[in-house]
């Protein structure tokens, strides 16, 4: 079992996948931890847009360059170009269709060639077998009487990992440290748990 308090880092120079309602926050946090410019590639018809004053809490918007691709082919081409260019540190892309194994492998090769980490924001159940890891992220509500009020909680589940084990983490954003921190899971009393069994 991985440590419940230490969040595994994304393997560098590989392409990862993330899904769920908290995918954007996950992507911004991971991009903020990387070095260099960040390219964000989204379909041009997408109405959900990043708001820079909100993004600035996780990642300086000056590092961000957006590309609006008109079709799925252009989106994948732009992702590959950005990964291969060697000029950017992190690439986020939001493909609309499931990726074929060939496309996934091409992106992995481009990421290795350009020494750049990629993150695909996929819809649920659309992952590619070529992905290094796949995460499912969702914002979480926790009653304030348990651990105090925290309105930044997310549940990050590692649901596929090529080199390692899976796990679940509950994370929150620490405003002072400007970093993500793992919140310990809510303790269940041993007696109550055993009684429940």
């Amino acid at each position: 079992m991985p440590s419940p308090t230490v969040l595994p880092k994304l393997a560098p120079f590989r392409v990862h996948e993330v899904g769920g309602a908290g995918a954007h926050a996950f992507a911004m946090v991971q991009a903020g931890a990387a070095v260099g410019p960040v390219v964000y590639i989204c379909p041009s018809h997408d109405t959900d847009r990043l708001l820079p004053s909100g993004v600035a809490q996780l990642l300086p918007p000056a590092r961000l360059m957006m590309v609006q691709a008109v079709g799925e082919v252009d989106l994948l081409w732009a992702t590959e170009e950005a990964l291969r260019s060697g000029a950017v540190g992190f690439v986020i892309a939001a493909p609309q269709k499931p990726l074929s194994l060939t496309a996934g492998r091409r992106l992995q090769l481009a990421a290795e060639a350009g020494r750049c980490t990629g993150l695909l924001m996929i819809r649920d159940g659309m992952g590619s077998n070529a992905a290094q890891t796949r995460w499912h992220c969702a914002p979480e509500w926790r009653a304030p009487e348990l651990l105090g009020r925290d309105s930044t909680l997310h549940k990050w589940s590692l649901i596929k990992n090529k080199e390692g084990t899976l796990g679940d983490w509950c994370v929150g954003w620490n405003e002072k440290a400007r970093a993500i921190c793992v919140v310990p899971p809510v303790g269940q009393r041993r007696e109550a748990a055993q009684a429940a069994l």
Partner: peptide, 25 residues
């Protein structure tokens, strides 16, 4: 070197998807 590579990337992206679709805030 890094800045030149980034400009070349913007050029390549802009020539295919359009320079108005490669944006900054």
């Amino acid at each position: 070197v890094g800045a030149d590579k980034l400009h070349d990337l913007i050029t390549r992206l802009g020539n295919r998807v359009g320079f108005d679709r490669v944006q900054r805030y």
